[in-house]
């Protein structure tokens, strides 16, 4: 049975929910043995959560000297060593900020192709599907190299439970030199915000939001929805929101179950960043806004009237 290694992302002592779709992609049609690598948490504590999604071995990944979490370089080198130690046929991670950085380094170290940000994979056909031209086209690309290295777009693959028995192990990678790059500091966000690319629901405000403070209205709705709050490029360029909130061509690419666009006209560049959302809802007071041509559900109305009512109705329906 081919072996697929997966780098797990953790947060506040637990396995992040977005890993489960990655594990489902890693397992394929139950055709691969999945080995999970964990660097931040205790492998034993994560074991049961990971075994529920088909992981048969959870490996605590360490480096001989130094802290593996102090440098993306060290982590990539340790993974490269793990590929050899565990004879992996595939090695996969999430296309998140840390995942993109570690797997970019890993592809270069192993000197094999890296297929980034895939949305689905077919081990039989040895192909994966990913975006080309900023979401305008989908490309079916060949999986080449030994091992096959890829990252999976968060939320793109629906997680499927597949409980198995798992064991734990430890692997101390021998990485001779010190890291070339070190993390000197992590500056926390001013507000404790959910990361857009990982959120299952997103509510976005366009330029008509008019002022940074008005995003509070969306924050309130987001809280009820368990959503992250996004912004359009026009709103970011007008100084109403930071670039970290921007969805679209020069911002973030997202794939949530539900995307609610408020006061967004629907430019091609915005759609490039969110068209793979499962359901798109538009709220706009211009009935001729292009976004209504390209979404699933629409409400014609001023977002300053519609959003507070939406928050209220959602709250009421939750209390029922």
């Amino acid at each position: 049975m081919p072996k697929t290694g997966v780098l797990i992302e953790t947060e506040n002592g637990g396995v992040k929910a977005i890993n489960y779709g990655l594990l489902t992609a890693a397992m394929g049609n139950k055709e691969n043995e999945v080995i999970a690598f964990i660097t931040q948490n205790d492998a034993a504590e994560a074991k049961d959560d990971l075994a529920a999604y088909g992981v048969s071995k959870v490996v605590q990944l360490k480096v001989g000297s130094g802290d593996i979490n102090s440098s993306p370089d060290l982590c990539a080198r340790a993974l490269a060593a793990a590929v050899e130690e565990f004879e992996l046929d595939h090695i996969a991670g999430l296309a998140t900020a840390p995942g993109r950085d570690i797997f970019g380094r890993l592809g270069a170290i192993l000197d094999v192709p890296l297929v980034s940000d895939i949305q689905s994979i077919d081990y039989g056909a040895e192909t994966a599907v990913k975006s080309h031209f900023s979401g305008k086209t989908m490309a079916t690309v060949k999986l080449e190299g030994s091992p096959v290295v890829f990252t999976v777009r968060p939320n793109a693959v629906d997680p499927v439970e597949n409980p198995v028995d798992a064991e734990t192990a430890e692997f101390n990678a021998d990485v001779a030199d010190g890291p070339k790059v070190t993390v000197k500091e992590v500056k926390a966000s001013q507000q404790d915000k959910m990361e857009l690319t990982e959120a299952p629901v997103i509510i976005t405000g366009g330029r008509p939001i008019g002022a940074p403070d008005n995003y509070k209205m969306l924050d309130e709705c987001a809280e009820v929805l368990g959503a992250a709050v996004g912004a359009s490029r026009a709103s970011v360029d007008a100084g109403f929101a930071p670039h970290s909130m921007q969805v679209g061509q020069t911002g973030k690419t997202v794939s949530p179950n539900l995307y609610i666009a408020c006061g967004v006209s629907g430019a091609v560049q915005h759609f490039a960043g969110m068209k793979t959302s499962k359901v798109i809802v538009a709220i706009n007071n211009d009935k001729d806004a292009p976004i209504f041509e390209k979404c699933d559900y629409g409400i014609i109305g001023d977002m300053f009237e519609v959003v507070p009512v939406l928050t209220e109705v959602l709250k009421a329906s939750e209390e029922k």
Partner: peptide, 14 residues
Amino acid sequence: EREIGGGAREVLEM
């Protein structure tokens, strides 16, 4: 500096 999610930033030195 690079953004690492939710507006948090990582400072890298090299």
